[in-house]
């Protein structure tokens, strides 16, 4: 133990082989980078291989394989689950549009000064505080079961689901917008106002276009969250991907449908996450070059 912590004489030799170790010698950067990549690749393969061997040789593996990676159940449930995912996509797309609009309205209302608007500002603030404080699932329950309980009938669960997701996420998104608005230097607003533009005109033509451009990466980040949270509405009975997987699972006494769900989400979410990263990096680079 003590040896592992303090490190043996072999440590320095190992360090040179690690990614970045070659950077010490500027002229050798090309071959150093190649070696780093190679080392990273080999160590990843070895690591995954060891993990796979350990898992496959574990005493419980055949049972796990049967209940989570059953090929027949996979093939049977795949079409149904993919079709159910279309419901998630619809939930996502419709609420995304609503969230972008509603969140923006809330952010603008909270950013406008003036005592006349105070009551509106207060309501907007309370809304944001409450909906960010409550667990999303609670809001979905209250809306999905509460409103029909009040005697409102003839409205589909889908509508409540959209409403709940919009209310939950608009609270977060409005804060993202607001951070963007606050990041625009007050001299921009002053310049617009000095030209005779009203508060709203200055907001609409000068502040918001700059603010929104700045917050696109964090907005995309929130939408990755929204994509995943669409499964929460399964709890009020909307038959979407997760609900469908539950149905398949109880029909087949097998957990493979959940693996299908996981794969679908990975395929759908990872590209968006990568896109967000690219945009964030580009944004940081641009800001670094334009900073005075």
């Amino acid at each position: 133990m003590a040896g592992a912590i303090s490190g043996g004489p072999g440590d320095s030799g190992l360090l040179i082989g690690l990614p970045g170790g070659g950077g010490r010698y500027g002229r050798e950067r090309g071959s150093g980078a190649l070696r780093s990549t190679l080392v990273a690749f080999v160590s990843t393969v070895v690591f995954l291989g060891v993990v796979a061997l350990l898992v496959v040789n574990a005493p419980g593996w055949p049972a796990v394989q049967e209940s989570f990676l059953n090929g027949r159940v996979f093939a049977d449930s795949l079409p149904l689950i993919v079709r159910a995912f279309w419901v998630n996509v619809q939930l996502f797309l419709v609420s995304e549009v609503l969230i972008l609009g509603f969140g923006l309205v809330i952010a603008v209302l909270r950013s406008l000064p003036g005592s006349v608007l105070f009551p509106i500002r207060l309501i907007a603030t309370v809304y944001v505080d409450v909906f960010r404080a409550l667990p999303g699932i609670l809001i979905i329950y209250v809306l999905g079961f509460g409103i029909p309980g009040l005697g409102v009938t003839g409205v589909s669960k889908f509508v409540f689901a959209i409403l709940a997701l919009t209310l939950i996420y608009s609270a977060y998104v409005s804060e993202v917008y607001r951070a963007g608005i606050n990041s625009i230097h007050p001299s921009q607003d002053a310049a617009a106002r000095s030209l005779g533009l009203s508060r709203l005109q200055s907001m609409r033509h000068v502040v918001l276009p700059q603010a929104v451009r700045r917050v696109i990466p964090p907005l995309l980040n929130d939408f990755i969250g929204l994509q995943k949270d669409t499964v929460l509405v399964s709890y009020i009975g909307v038959v979407e991907i997760f609900r469908q997987a539950q149905i398949r699972q109880s029909a087949s006494f097998n957990f493979t449908p959940y693996i299908v769900v996981a794969l679908v989400f990975l395929l759908f979410t990872i590209p968006l996450a990568r896109l967000t990263d690219v945009l964030v990096t580009r944004d940081q680079r641009r800001r670094a070059t334009t900073a005075r």
Binding site: S187, Q188, A190, A191, R193, S194, L195, V206, Q210
Partner: peptide, 20 residues
């Protein structure tokens, strides 16, 4: 206020052009 500002032009030390 907006009407009055229209008739008064102001130019600041920092240029404050709209960058977008």
């Amino acid at each position: 206020v907006n009407k009055i500002r229209r008739r008064i032009g102001i130019v600041f030390q920092a240029f404050n052009l709209f960058p977008h």
